[in-house]
Structure formats: structure tokens, C-alpha cells
Nucleic acid binder design. Structure first.
Lengths: 351, 351
DNA sequence: CCGTGGAGTGAGAACGTTCTCGGAGTGGCC
DNA sequence: GGCCACTCCGAGAACGTTCTCACTCCACGG
């Protein structure tokens, strides 16, 4: 019964116990090391009995391979990210890595930079940015530290490594879908202002509006949250000439908007209003919302991330930079259906 | 431009650069150290210019204070946990700590133990268990390592430190509420079989049923997920003598159940069926679900966790063991309202 | 003038690993 | 018998910090 946390058993203790040298014991824990099979078995058996496990800090110092992967996330409240995080964590554990999680802290941004510095002091092998925004100061800190950076679901513009989905194409496809379903006055509800996801999706929306000669409406929700979507929808729908379709920059925004329309304003969705989101988070598929959306190719994105990670973790190659853009796909659901309109109305609106 | 990640600048480099000894430079980074103010300023200025930052691994080795807090989470898909995680992470960063996240991996359990061992090799100051289950083998590994353990939202029975809410009381209150709202044949939908949350909540339900002389029905959903709730509700409601009220062991279960009832079976909720959940996750408050539930006192629980953490991080005291049970409160919403019944029916059913 | 004490500094030992180097033993081959 | 290759092991130097101890100043009191 260890009364004081009296310094766990070390490799030196184990070596003394076994009457071997420290080097020999260390070899037992290395795969290809030159050690007799029986010696190794002896060591491992005794190690298990004593509950010895190598100290990852010491190992990390000498090998310069910490097997720590830093992850910066901004808003875990958006259900998209927990999903990513869960799969990511699973995959990293599979690869024998541990994940250090840092959250961006609401608003300040100063907190984010501080947190990133703290993270970097543990010398992670690399840092994955899940956050929609990261101050460029933070990115520079990473660069200075020589820590490779990978952006997921965000394209920071520079020559950084990034994995994103086809945001503009997705938004364009959704916009066309809304128009094809009879929308005449579509509006875009944005998210976090400086995020590349937001601006790319907005660009897709605007492009299709221009292409079809439609006056685009929009409202900058300011955040990717239920509340922001709720408020934005109310603002748009209660103004003059309210839109008849909403394309939201993310599913959580869309759900907020949809519920505002239905439960505050008493609109029928679909029927009086069409709503589409982006991401395809689990709640989008729930029949209550039955939300048309653009499915992010999460599996493919994570696979790409792991491919990028592999050489980094192996320490054999510098991380390949560049942008990987993966195709998502339209998931048409009830929130943009035309069933509640008569066929005559539909035919009328389609021309 | 660091072509190779050629070993970041160390304290030795900085000392040489400044013409001082390593010890002096180190002192500049320690708050109460004996160093002249101007020397410290000189060091800090030069350090900032060179982008030097102490290596947390080396520091952790010598001080035995890693400032790493391990967190084991099982299912991030349950929206309850991201919420906890986000706040926890924020609080830990505030305290100058970093969080290592490990997810329990679906099903196997072997993966969880391996992940925990990996985590422990980084010598975290303590480990927080958010998971609903953790093999006792894992707990023993922690104990052997002398790493303090704190369970959140789970009471492992032993003399472990744990912070939970009043699960039994909550479930009892919800059950009484359902009965008071006119339910005659209430049923309980369980979650993960071995979890203490599940069994405590079930006990509360059963106690009230016994107290009121009502035959309890139940269905072990087997997991805390939308899909499990969905399936359990269908199984219960399509059987003979279907229940007229469902108490679900968590909100995400309840939402699955509610949607199955409404959208698969065409039942009115409330009206034909009452549904209540547990936790008060954000989607419970959305008008689509408008779910009656028991609100977990998340703020209080996290505050308690930080109180427990403080002496551990300071290294001044062994962590106080024992169970902290905090009171939640009933949040009555539309899913258990009686508005759709006439007042006569209500009066009749109340006696 | 000496001793004392405090403030500031430097040298070097830790911490728990891995890695490099050299050496001991064994066996085979000419 | 000499040489070589091969397998296995041990000693000791790293890694980048913090910590302990001793040392040098300088001021001050006697």
C-alpha cells in the first residue's frame, strides 16, 4: 500500500531485482533489440508482476518521439466535433498515440494562444486544428517550434496542410436543390465570420444565386450554434419579404432555424419554408428535423488525416503540405421536400 | 527555416547566448526564485526573442509534477459528455494543466485497459473517469501506479472518490411526476447494463412503482444512445399492454424513444404517451422534443471536481476519497404535459 | 579588522529512459 | 590454433530540466 506516491518503480529497480543491467532490461521492451528470447520473457514476466511500465516522459526526451498528438478544438457544443473527436481518438490510440486536447476558450483568443503554448511545451509530434479559427500568432508559434500542423475542416489559405470537404460545391448543390424544389427567395445563414468553412459555403450559395439571376439574401449568424441559427431565422423571417428557403452554414444552425420557424412562427417546414444544413450530424437524420444537408465525408477525411500523420509519427519524413479536398454528397430529406404543395403549385414554381 | 526539426532551442543554448549559467536562466522562469530583477528581465526578453519555452517533459521528470490530467471518456456520442468535456477542459487550462483524452473504445474493453496503461505511462497527476464503465482491472492499474482517480457521474461502489447527482431521487421524482400526470402503465428504458447511473435510476423508478402499487415494466436498452432508445420504445410499445409513459435512463435514449413513438407509431407525445429523460442535454430543451427531464447539476459537479483536483495539483495533500452527491432538479416540459386531455379525464386519472 | 548574513550566481547531481560502444562468450572454418 | 562472425550483455553518456550546495560579493555591526 503506497502511502506516499513514492515514485513508481523504475527500470533501475527492475534491473536490480533481476540482477541484470539497465540496458538489458530496456532491450526487452524494444521490438527488434538484440536480446535472448528467454531473457526477454524473464524481464517481461517480472515487469508485469511488479507493474512496471516505462516512463513515457523519459522515453520521449531521449527519443524525441513523444507520441503525443495535440488537438485544438474550439466548440465542442457543435455536435459535429465530438463525432470527429471520438473517431480521431480511437484511431490515434490504435496507432499507439495519446491525444492532448486543448479547447479554444470562448471569445478571448488570448486564452487559445496561451493554451497552445502550453500544449507545445509537451513537444507533441504534431498538432491537429479542428477549430474553425486559430489566430495566426498560434500558427506561427507552431511553425517556430517546428511542429507540423494539420487543419481539419478548415483551410487557412497559406501553404499549410489541410483537409476539408468541398464546401463551395456542397453549398452550390444545396442551393440548386432548394431552387429546384421551388424556392424563389433563398437566404443564407452564416456562421462564425472568419472561418473558411463559412466563407466557402457562402461563396457557393452566392455563385448559384448569381448564375440563376436571383437576389441573394443572407444573415451572418456569427456563430455555429443552435441559438445563433434560431435568432438568425427569426430576424430573416420577420423582416419584409421573408425568404422561402434557408441554407444554413451548418446543421446545428439549420436545426435552430428550423425550430424557430416551426415553433415560434408557426410555419410549416417544408411547405411554407425549406431548410437545408451542412455536415450531416446525427440529429439531422432524426425524423423531428429530417434535415436536408451535405454530408461531410468524415471517414475519408479521417483516413486522409491518418495518412498524413503516418510519416510524422514514424519520424521518417516531413509532413506533406497542401490541401486535400474530399467530396461530400447531398442528402435530401424531408425539410426540403415538396410533398405538401400540390403538383400544380410545384409545376408553376418550377418555371 | 528549420529544414529538419532540429531539436528546439534549449535552456543551455539560451544560457550560452546570454553568457549566464543554466541555473540562473532556469531561475528566471521560477516565480519565487532568488534572482535579480534585471537579470530575470534580460533572460525573459531574450527567451521571448528566441522563442524558447521550457520542455515540459524534462520539467515533469525532475519535479514529478507533469501537470497532465488524464480523462477517460467512453461515449462522446452521448451529447452529455461533450458538454462536460468542454467545461472541464476550460477549467483545466485555467489551472495551467493539460488534458490527455482517452476514449474507451466501443465494446471490447480490452482497448480501454490498453489505452489507460498508455495514458498512465505519461504519469498524469490524476485521472478523471467520465466513462460509465471502466473495468476494475483499469482501476487497479491506476491504484498500483499511485495515480488518484476521480469518477464523474459514476459511483464505482468501492471507497473511490466520485461525484454524482442524485440519480435515484431524480428518477423517483420523474416517476411520481409521470404518475401525477396520469400515467398508469409506466415503463423504464435502461441504458448500459453495468453502469451505476443506470442501476440507480432504475432503482428510483422501481421504488416509486412499489410505493404506489404499480406493476413496473422495463426494457434494457443496453446502451445510452438514440438508436437504443428508439429500438427499446418500439419493443415496448408494440407488445401487448403497451405502456402509457416512458422513463428513460438518459435524454438521448428518451429522444430516440420519443421519435420512435411519434414518427414510427404515429403516437401523440404527450397525449397518447408521456416521455421523460435524464440529464437535460441541450437538445432536450429544443421545442421539437420539449423533453421533461432531470437536470444534472453540471456546474456544481465540475466545481466539486475542481475542488478535489486542487490539492492533487498542488501536490500538497492526498486526494480526499468519498462520494459527493449533488442535487439535480426536475425540469417539467411538454413531453409530459396533460394539455391534450380534458380536465375531466385528468381529474378522473388523478384518483 | 573580522565575522555575519543576505542576495545573487555557478557547478554538478539528479530524474528515468534510450543509445552507442566495447567486450565476453560461442561456434564454424580454414 | 588462429581468425572471424555472430549473439548477447554491461557501462556510461546523453536528453533538458530542476534542485542542492557552495561560492562570491557587498553591506553592516561590533
Amino acid at each position: 500500500m503506497p502511502d506516499r506516491p513514492a515514485s513508481r518503480i523504475t527500470i533501475k529497480d527492475l534491473a536490480r531485482e533481476l540482477g541484470m543491467s539497465v540496458a538489458t532490461v530496456a532491450r526487452a521492451f524494444h521490438e527488434g533489440a538484440a536480446i535472448a528470447a528467454e531473457t526477454r520473457a524473464l524481464v517481461l514476466k517480472r515487469a508485469a508482476a511488479l507493474g512496471y511500465q516505462p516512463n513515457a516522459l523519459a522515453r520521449g526526451m531521449i527519443t524525441r518521439r513523444t507520441r503525443i498528438v495535440g488537438v485544438v478544438a474550439s466548440d465542442l457544443h457543435n455536435p459535429f466535433y465530438p463525432d470527429v473527436l471520438a473517431r480521431l481518438s480511437e484511431a490515434l490510440q490504435q496507432a499507439g498515440c495519446n491525444m492532448m486536447l486543448v479547447t479554444g476558450g470562448g471569445g478571448t483568443g488570448g486564452g487559445e494562444a496561451a493554451a497552445l503554448r502550453l500544449l507545445l511545451s509537451y513537444r507533441p509530434e504534431c498538432v491537429l486544428i479542428l477549430a474553425t479559427t486559430l489566430s495566426s500568432a498560434g500558427a506561427e508559434a507552431c511553425a517556430a517550434a517546428g511542429t507540423p500542423l494539420l487543419y481539419l475542416n478548415r483551410f487557412p489559405g497559406a501553404a499549410a496542410a489541410a483537409i476539408v470537404c468541398d464546401n463551395a460545391e456542397g453549398a452550390a448543390a444545396l442551393t440548386r436543390h432548394l431552387l429546384d424544389q421551388g424556392a424563389r427567395r433563398p437566404a443564407f445563414i452564416g456562421g462564425l465570420a472568419d472561418s473558411s468553412t463559412q466563407s466557402e459555403r457562402r461563396a457557393g450559395f452566392l455563385a448559384v444565386c448569381a448564375e440563376r439571376g436571383i437576389l441573394p439574401r443572407e444573415h451572418p449568424a456569427g456563430a455555429f450554434s443552435y441559438e445563433a441559427g434560431h435568432a438568425a431565422a427569426l430576424a430573416l423571417l420577420q423582416g419584409g419579404q421573408p425568404p422561402d428557403a434557408l441554407l444554413c452554414a451548418s446543421d446545428i444552425l439549420a436545426i435552430g432555424a428550423l425550430e424557430a420557424a416551426r415553433h415560434v412562427l408557426g410555419l410549416r417546414v417544408p411547405g411554407d419554408l425549406l431548410v437545408a444544413g451542412f455536415d450531416d450530424i446525427p440529429p439531422a437524420a432524426w425524423p423531428s428535423h429530417d434535415l436536408t444537408t451535405w454530408r461531410q465525408p468524415l471517414d475519408a477525411m479521417l483516413a486522409a488525416a491518418l495518412d498524413w500523420l503516418a510519416p510524422v509519427l514514424a519520424g521518417i519524413a516531413p509532413p506533406p503540405p497542401g490541401l486535400t479536398r474530399l467530396p461530400g454528397r447531398l442528402v435530401a430529406r424531408g425539410s426540403t421536400a415538396t410533398t405538401t404543395r400540390t403538383e400544380e403549385e410545384q409545376a408553376c414554381q418550377l418555371h
